[in-house]
Amino acid sequence: MLQLVGPTAWTRVTATLTYDPRDPFAVRVRFGGRSSDGTDDDGVEWLVARDLLHAGLTRPSGEGDVRLWPARTAADVLFLELRAPSGHALFELSRAVLAGFLATTEQLVPLGGESDAADMDPELLALLQDE
C-alpha cells in the first residue's frame, strides 16, 4: 500500500511491484488493477528503472517523470513522484518494504549484472521492425 499525498488528506492506494529477470533494468509498478470486491479495474502501470529505486533509498534520484527521495524526518519513509502530461502524483511508501523488494530482485540479477542477463536481440528486432 502507498499513500497518495493530497492537498488536504492522504489516500491509500494499492500498488504491486513486479520484476522480471528477462527485463532486468526495469521494475513495474502497477496501481489498481483489482478493486476491493475482486473485479478488475483499469489499473495503471509504470516502468521504473531498478537503479533509480535503489539510489532513491538513500538520496534523491530520478529526473523527469519519476523521482524518488527519502524523507528528512522519518527513517522508513520515501516519497515517489510520478509526472505525466495529464498531471502528477506524490506517494509515500515504506523504505523497508522497497529495500526488501529490491534485495529479492538482486538475488535474481545482481546489481551491475543487468547487461549480462538482458536478452537484447528480441528487443533490437522489435525496434527495427517498428521502423
Rank of each mutant, 00 (worst) to 15 (best):
G64M: 06
E81M: 05
A15Q: 06
R22A: 14
T73I: 08
T39A: 12
T16Q: 05
P70S: 12
L90P: 09
D42T: 07
A103N: 06
L57W: 00
H88C: 12
F101E: 06
L111R: 15
G38T: 02
Q107R: 13
G100A: 06
M120D: 01
V44L: 14
D20K: 11
G43M: 06
L127F: 09
D37L: 13
A84N: 03
A75F: 04
E123T: 10
D76C: 14
L93D: 04
D130K: 08
T73R: 09
V13Y: 00
A103Q: 07
R83D: 06
G100C: 05
F31H: 06
P110R: 13
D116F: 07
G64W: 08
L128Q: 15
S36V: 07
D20T: 00
D119E: 05
D23C: 07
E123N: 07
T39V: 08
S61A: 15
L98T: 01
E92A: 15
R22L: 04
R28H: 13
E106T: 09
R50F: 01
S86G: 06
D119M: 03
G64Y: 08
G87P: 11
D130E: 10
V48M: 06
R22E: 06
Q3W: 03
V77T: 15
E63M: 10
G38E: 02
R12S: 06
D76I: 12
A96I: 10
T73H: 13
Q3G: 08
P85A: 10
V109H: 09
Y19M: 08
A71T: 08
G43Y: 08
A103G: 10
A26I: 02
F31R: 03
T8G: 01
